[in-house]
Amino acid sequence: MKGVLYVFLLVGVVFFTSCEPEPVPVIMEGMAAIYADVKDYSAIASGPAREIGELGKIVNVGNTLYINELYQGIHVIDNSDPVDPIFTHFLTILGNTDFTIQGTTLYADNGVDLIVIDISDIENIDVVDVIEDQYSGIEDPFQYRPPNYRGVFDCVNLDEGFVVGWELRTLTNPACFAN
């Protein structure tokens, strides 16, 4: 809170000491949210294995491991030989942090809804049902501030979409501060 005040003060100082009639914008490095339209279910798809980001929840079915990458989707790993596991696919489900599997049906969240996905053909997964607004989404601090970060950031505007990541950017008049 104090941080936010400092930013406002800084803006104020720049404003009042300026000879220009217009306020001079404060430009500085800080974090900004990456938004996604998680309700675009057509974006849910199976693709080739890819590099892992920050991992989340894990599920094992038979010799296959499924592991969430926070807010991005699910890595599929053939673990028939635990000494030499092989990444086979990545299922893109933006906003995803929770999931489970029954038979060939994947139940996964997108931060807001519970999505039912037929994964019997892992190359061509298919959204077969959506239970809308299973989650409020608002309890997740990730939606409000960058995790493990101290400094200024662009305040989140949830009207722009669901926050699926944070990145360092050059910000104009950032009004939020994490300490």
Partner: peptide, 21 residues
């Protein structure tokens, strides 16, 4: 289906249990 201890969805005997906040 084996889950970690942080699971929030579990399929059990024909039912799916889901917790939110």
């Amino acid at each position: 289906t084996l889950s970690g201890s942080y699971a929030t969805m579990l399929p059990i005997d024909g039912f799916l249990y889901v917790i939110n906040e």
